[in-house]
Simulated assay, not measured.
Amino acid sequence: MRLLCDEMLVGLARWLRAAGYDAATPVPGDDDRRLIARAAVEERLFLTRDRPIARHKAAAGLVVVLEAAALDAQAQELRRRLAVDWLAAPFSRCLLCNVVLQAAAPQAVARAPEPARAGGGPFCSCPSCGRLYWPGSHARRMRARLERWAAAE
């Protein structure tokens, strides 16, 4: 499933990426018609909380209007409405660039803090921005939240 989140849902897009989904975000200031057209061209569902967007003629079948305001509630709404699996492919995409991560080269791993290197990895990096990922405390906290969302009824 390929998604496009509007400006209000950029934080949700990062969590969708953490779960392994291709979740694009708009250029700030893009208008509704351009976002709907982009969703159509890129074969994405457009996620928004803005009800008027769904009334655009071109939006039929492309726009999903989320009712929930809080992140945890949005996660459950997506699980219920779109069958989002919050453990689909954890930490397989860059949280910033939305690019599929690759195994980190030794020189990239050398940039990691010593405690992280001592943990043994696995280490991944983003081929676009170079960001390094490893299973540290931040990733463990995020993984726990993804697991909580996946287990919720």
Rank of each mutant, 00 (worst) to 15 (best):
V41Q: 08
W149V: 04
Y21S: 01
R143Y: 09
A23V: 06
L78C: 04
A59R: 03
V10L: 09
V41A: 14
R44P: 00
L146Y: 01
R51Q: 13
R80A: 14
T25M: 05
A40P: 00
G29L: 07
L146R: 00
A54M: 02
Q74R: 07
E42M: 01
L95S: 14
T48A: 07
P26Y: 08
E147D: 04
A152G: 02
L71F: 07
F91W: 07
A70F: 00
A151T: 00
R111K: 15
R111N: 09
D85M: 03
G121A: 12
Y21K: 01
Q107M: 08
T25K: 03
G130R: 14
I53Q: 04
R33F: 05
R111T: 15
R117C: 09
A23P: 02
A70H: 05
R140L: 14
A68G: 03
R2Y: 00
R143T: 04
W134R: 12
A68H: 05
R44G: 01
E77C: 10
L96N: 10
R2K: 12
E43R: 12
D22K: 04
E67K: 12
A139V: 15
D32S: 06
E67C: 06
A139I: 15
M142H: 06
A69F: 01
A105Y: 06
L12T: 01
A88W: 07
A58W: 03
G11E: 10
D50S: 10
C129W: 13
Q102C: 10
L101T: 09
L146K: 01
S125Y: 09
L66S: 07
V84G: 02
L95E: 11
A103D: 15
G20A: 03
M1L: 11
R80Q: 14
A118F: 08
I36A: 05
A110M: 07
C124W: 14
P122R: 12
A73I: 02
A59P: 02
A59L: 06
V99Q: 14
P26A: 08
R34Q: 08
V109E: 15
A19V: 04
A144Q: 13
Y21W: 05
A144D: 12
A116H: 08
R140G: 13
V100F: 06
R141Y: 05
A60F: 02
A152D: 01
L16E: 00
E7H: 08
V109W: 11
L9E: 05
D32Q: 03
A23Q: 03
A23C: 08
G121Y: 12
E147R: 07
P106R: 10
M142R: 05
G29T: 06
L45H: 02
L47C: 02
A60R: 12
C126G: 11
R49E: 02
P28A: 13
G119E: 13
A58R: 08
V99F: 03
R81K: 10
A60Q: 12
R2A: 04
V84T: 05
V109R: 15
